[in-house]
């Protein structure tokens, strides 16, 4: 993992601010994360990832929250989405989402965009802001149970 070396443009608050001003954004953006550090990797899974990195366009800051849905024996997608909804998240960046989670994300009006793994959290945010990711409009074929 991580063999791919990207031309990585570090996101400083200033750069992000400029981009956001152009977008006139006001969003909270969640990224599935393997760890609770900005330099860490984006998770390969949504509802059973270890953490969510939530980027707030207003404060230009990341907040990491532990994904309490990970340990659920069933309905992790429902619970994870409820957690994001309660945190006021508008956009989710995920590698894929299962059918139940997809329906629930729609119910919470959370848009989902797809990143490819492996990628670092900050590069995933960068990719989203630059409009590189397709919107997920359909659940992956099977639930990952």
């Amino acid at each position: 993992m991580g063999a791919q070396i990207m031309e990585c443009v570090p996101i400083t608050e200033m750069e992000v601010e400029i981009i956001i001003n152009q977008r006139s954004g006001n969003l909270k953006i969640a990224i599935c994360a393997d760890s609770n550090i900005l330099d860490g990797m984006g998770s390969k899974r949504y509802a059973r990832s270890d953490y969510f990195a939530i980027y707030d366009e207003k404060t230009l800051q990341f907040t990491f929250i532990k994904n309490e849905a990970k340990k659920e024996s069933s309905g992790a997608g429902n619970k994870a989405t409820k957690i994001l909804g309660d945190h006021g998240v508008h956009v989710l960046l995920a590698p894929k989402v299962g059918p139940k989670a997809f329906d629930m994300l729609k119910a919470f009006d959370i848009e989902v965009y797809q990143y490819e793994t492996p990628a670092k959290i900050k590069d995933i945010l960068d990719g989203y802001i630059k409009g590189r990711f397709p919107e997920i409009t359909q659940a992956s074929a099977q639930g990952h149970q």
């Binding site: 849905a69 659920e72 069933s74 309905g75 992790a76 429902n78 619970k79 989405t81 409820k82 909804g85 139940k100 329906d103 629930m104 119910a107 919470f108």
Partner: peptide, 23 residues
Amino acid sequence: CGEHCNFNAIIVTAKKVIVSEDL
């Protein structure tokens, strides 16, 4: 209802309650 469901089968959003019957 959602807080008490042990199986995440009932989720309450700001607008409605969603039931996952199969859970």
